[in-house]
Simulated assay, not measured.
Amino acid sequence: MRPVEVHCHGFGDVDFSDFTRVDLDRLDQWCAGEGVLALPTMYLHRDRLGEFEAFMRLYAAKRADGLLAHIPGIALEGPLLSHRGGTPQSTVWAPSRPEWERLAELGDHGLVYTVVSPDAYSPESVLQDDPHLRESDFEWIVPTLLAHGVRPALGHFTRDDPARSAATVDAIVETAHRSEWNGTGVRVTTDHLFNDMPLNIRHAFRTDRARAQRDEVIASYDLPNWTLDNISEMAGPVPGAIIKQAVAGRISACINFDGEHVDLALATRAVQLMGPRNAMIMTDRCDSARLGGRALHHTADNALWYEENGVVAAGSHPLVRHIANAKAHGLGDEDIDFLVTRTAHRTFGIAAVERVSAAA
C-alpha cells in the first residue's frame, strides 16, 4: 500500500481549485514521482457547480479506463462552512436541496468527502442570511451524502458555544451511523484537529515571539496526564468530542504534522489518545503562491501560506516532512504506517481500488 496525501490543495504549479485547468494525467504522474496517492481538495463556487460535475465525470471516466491510479478520490472543502477561515469568501454558501442532491450524486463519480461545519446553522454562522440555509438540515444532508458514498468531514467551527458545537459533532456522527451507507470504510472524517475550532489551549506557536514562550506554555498543559476522561476539560469540548468519537471508531480524524498548523507535542499526544488506527496525517499543502484564485504569501516566521489579511490559507510541506516530524516526536514506524497509509486506505476504501488498478 502506498502513502496517502490527504487534504492537499496544490502540487507544483497546479491550483486544484482551478479544476477546469487541472491536467489529471499530469497530476497522476506527479503523484507517482513522489510515491504517494493523493486526494486533491478543492473549493467550489456556487456558479461553477456544473463545471465541477463535468470535471468529476471526466475523472470517473479516466478511472474506469484504468488511469489515474494515484488519485483514488476527489474532495471538497465546503461549501457549508460557518466561517470562511482561509477559504475564499465566494466558496462559502448553503446549497439548496437540489444542489445538495447534485453534490451527493458526485459520490458515484469519485467525490469522497466534503467539509461541512457543524456550526453552519448557529446564530454566529456567516450563512445566516443565505436564503437556502434552512431548506435542509443535517438530519437530511448527512443521509443524502452517505447514500452516494460522500463522507461529511467536520471542520470550520465557530467559537461562541463550544459545548453546543461538541454536541452537534456527536449528533452528526450518530445520524451518520443511522443512515444508509453506499460506500466502504469510515462514514465521518474531519478537517484538521485543533485548527478552526474553539480550544482551551494555545495550539500553535507561529512567530519567534510565540516560540520563545512555547516550552513554558506546553509544560503547563501537562500533556502526559491527558486522558479520555479529561480531554474535553483540558483541550476543549470540540477536540474532546472528536477524539472520543475517533477512539470509538466512528470518526477518522485528520491532524497536521507540519509543526506550524499545530504544535507537534499536541499533535503527538492527540494521536496517542485516539490511536494511530483512527487518525490520518493531512498536509493542507499548496506548492504555489496561488490558491482558489487568491494570491498568497509567506512571512519570515514560518512556511505557511497567508492571505493578504494575514489569515492562514494553507501549508506548504509535503508528506515526507510531516512523516519526519512525527518520527522526531517519538511516533514509531508502525504508528506512522497507520497515520499515512493504513488508516486512509481503510477510511476511503482505497485498498480494493488499488488492487483492481494494479490488475489492470
Score class of each variant (00 low, 15 high):
residue 9 H to R: 14
residue 10 G to C: 07
residue 11 F to R: 13
residue 19 F to H: 06
residue 22 V to R: 09
residue 28 D to S: 13
residue 36 V to N: 09
residue 42 M to H: 02
residue 43 Y to I: 01
residue 55 F to P: 05
residue 58 L to G: 11
residue 66 G to K: 08
residue 87 T to N: 15
residue 90 S to A: 15
residue 103 L to I: 15
residue 110 G to M: 02
residue 116 V to M: 13
residue 116 V to R: 05
residue 123 P to D: 06
residue 124 E to K: 13
residue 125 S to M: 07
residue 128 Q to L: 09
residue 131 P to D: 08
residue 135 E to N: 05
residue 138 F to Q: 01
residue 139 E to V: 12
residue 141 I to G: 05
residue 144 T to E: 13
residue 144 T to G: 02
residue 147 A to F: 09
residue 150 V to Y: 01
residue 152 P to K: 08
residue 159 R to C: 06
residue 160 D to V: 01
residue 163 A to Y: 08
residue 168 T to K: 11
residue 170 D to L: 12
residue 172 I to F: 07
residue 181 W to F: 15
residue 184 T to C: 06
residue 190 T to D: 14
residue 191 D to M: 02
residue 193 L to A: 09
residue 197 M to D: 00
residue 199 L to P: 06
residue 204 A to C: 12
residue 220 S to K: 00
residue 231 I to R: 06
residue 231 I to T: 04
residue 232 S to W: 11
residue 238 V to N: 07
residue 245 Q to I: 02
residue 253 A to K: 09
residue 257 F to A: 08
residue 270 A to N: 01
residue 273 L to V: 07
residue 275 G to L: 03
residue 279 A to P: 00
residue 283 T to V: 05
residue 288 S to L: 11
residue 292 G to R: 01
residue 306 Y to E: 04
residue 311 V to I: 11
residue 312 V to N: 03
residue 315 G to W: 01
residue 316 S to I: 02
residue 318 P to S: 02
residue 318 P to R: 06
residue 318 P to W: 10
residue 321 R to I: 12
residue 326 A to L: 04
residue 333 D to K: 07
residue 335 D to T: 06
residue 348 F to M: 13
